[in-house]
Design a protein around this nucleic acid. Structure first.
Length: 487
RNA sequence: GCGGGAGUAGCUCAAUGGUAGAGCACUGGCCUUCCAAGCCAGCUAUGCGGGUUCGAUCCCCGUCUUCCGCUCCA
């Protein structure tokens, strides 16, 4: 029963076939929610992260104010540990939100929090609580924890429990003071971090979109409370523009502001950069990045203790004895502005991106099936990844037209020369057309071919991936020619 | 977590209660002055575990993975 493959299935198949993405532990039957990046995939993802780091951190101009904004700002980086003090996750709110005792009803398929049972209604008999109706068939309470638990030290007892971070952000907040007291930065400034995070997703699904181990690219941007709205708007637009600049320019990308009832417990404003992935239904979008206005929630939580919403602001959550439910560090995380002689707790704008989701979106966007004429002029189908040159795993492929008459030697020399600047691939096997098509599937922007003319006049052809148009270029000018077209 | 479908070669598929086949890909060779060409040769598979059976890839049970829907979702 041959059913037509969906676009997504063809993309997944290409990812496997060409070595972009493999299922983790595949030879043992696979493991749900975990994925490996193959030789091409690792280059793609690395290029993506490098582009982000360069555009956000090392390439950032610390001395020129962005147009229309109150000041210039600094950007610095951080790389913190995946396992942190367990109290970090209590103060941040993750412990409470990610950790529940739940029961399922086998009859009505509903799921309930054990601590809320006395206040909840049975879906089938609203006059009773779940479990009290005769048809109810509840499971035993089960621990439900979205954080990966582990143990510090070889002795496994409750006092040694710790968690793999569910987000990289908290490592930035707890290092806020370290950074601003050592890096000579003044508010406003941002701290960037790229790293792995872990969540025990209930339903890992849709290829790498919802994975249990994933990589985040996060910025925590600290600013004066009164300036936070303009900075929020700035980051929101800038981050959207970043995806556009790398090729997600189609109508499949959008920037969407959250409704008030959609906001997370900490947020007083959030926008998502979303992409219409092929695995979603028509009109649906999946989140690539969230840009959140987190106010002073995080710094205050790590100072005073876990906060809860209190009117328009936040207050420390307290137990029945009046003590903080989850105490913070007790350290003062406020900032003193020398220029204005003002002390305040900075507000935070958080652009939080998923590296794996971005890589997947760029792959989906780049995946193209078109037709090009063969040697007889008959249109032939081909698959081509139209990746932005910055993201392409291989920048240039070098071929001898045929593997004799000195062409391989000349091509190899060109390869060795270009290799010093870019990731360049050399291939002399098979027909030239087949080699072009192979590179099309890998997303290589340019193929350089040494032919018979090359041997006489020291020129080569440069073939464009997207148009298949060939340009004859002197070998002497090849590197600068490619540099210009790759930028 | 629930319900349903699926799992055979790198990919896409076929077949069968009696030991698995194709196309493409891949490797080597010949040939070839530019878009998956031709010829020759070669490599590669029944997710895992158990059961029924003389014999299981096929039937049954379990499990894992995956897809769809629901549920859930910082």
């Amino acid at each position: 029963m041959a059913t037509e493959q969906t676009v997504m299935e063809r993309i997944v198949s290409l990812c496997k076939r060409r070595g972009f993405i493999f299922q983790s532990s595949e030879i043992y039957g696979g493991i749900g929610g975990f994925w490996d990046y193959g030789p091409l995939g690792v280059e793609l993802k690395r290029n993506l992260k490098d582009a982000w780091w360069k555009d956000m951190v090392t390439g950032h101009d610390d001395i020129t104010p962005p147009e229309g904004l109150p000041s210039a700002y600094s950007m610095v980086g951080l790389d913190c540990s995946i396992i942190m003090h367990p109290d970090v996750w209590k103060a941040s709110g993750h412990f409470d939100l990610f950790h529940d005792m739940l029961v399922d009803c086998r009859t009505c398929k509903a799921r309930f929090r054990v601590d809320q049972l006395p206040t909840l209604q049975c879906p089938e008999k609203p006059s009773k609580h779940p479990g009290e109706h005769s048809a109810c068939d509840l499971t035993e309470p089960r621990e439900f924890n979205l954080m990966f638990k582990t143990f510090i030290g070889a002795l496994h007892d409750p006092s040694s429990e710790a968690y793999l971070r569910p987000e990289t952000a908290q490592g930035i907040f707890v290092n806020f003071k370290n950074v601003y007291t050592t890096a000579r930065v003044k508010v406003p400034f941002g701290i960037a971090q790229i790293g792995k995070s872990f969540r025990n997703e209930i339903t890992p699904r849709n290829f790498t979109f919802r994975s249990r181990e994933f990589e985040q690219m996060e910025i925590e941007f600290f600013c004066h409370p009164e300036q936070s709205p303009v900075w929020y708007a700035y980051w929101r637009d800038r981050r959207y523009g970043w995806y556009v600049s790398l090729g997600l320019s189609s109508d499949r990308l959008r920037l969407r502001d959250h409704d008030a009832d959609e906001l997370s417990h900490y947020s007083c404003g959030t926008a998502d950069v979303e992409y219409a992935f092929p695995f979603l239904s028509e009109g649906e979008f999946g989140e690539l990045e969230g840009i959140a206005h987190r106010s002073d929630f995080d710094l205050r939580s790590h100072s005073e203790g876990k906060l809860i919403r209190d009117g328009d602001g936040f207050a420390v959550e307290r137990d029945q004895d009046g003590n903080p439910r989850h105490p913070g560090s007790g350290k003062d995380l406020s900032y003193f502005d020398e220029a204005t002689q003002q002390r305040f707790v900075p507000h935070v704008i958080e652009p939080s991106a998923g590296a794996d989701r971005a890589a997947l979106a760029f792959l989906c966007e780049a995946y193209t099936e078109d037709t090009i004429p063969d040697e007889k002029g008959v249109p032939q189908e081909r698959i081509v990844l139209k990746l932005h040159p910055r993201l392409a795993p291989i920048k240039v492929a070098v071929f001898p037209l045929i593997k004799k008459d000195g062409m391989p030697e000349m091509a190899a020399e060109i390869y060795r020369d270009l290799k010093q600047r870019w990731n360049v691939f050399y291939d002399l096997k098979g027909s030239i057309g087949r080699r072009y098509r192979r590179q099309d599937e890998s997303g290589t922007p340019f193929c350089v071919t040494v032919d018979h003319d090359s041997l006489n006049d020291e020129t080569v052809t440069v073939r464009d991936r997207d148009t298949t148009v060939q340009t004859r270029v002197p070998v002497k000018e090849l590197a600068s020619h490619l540099a210009e077209r790759l930028s």
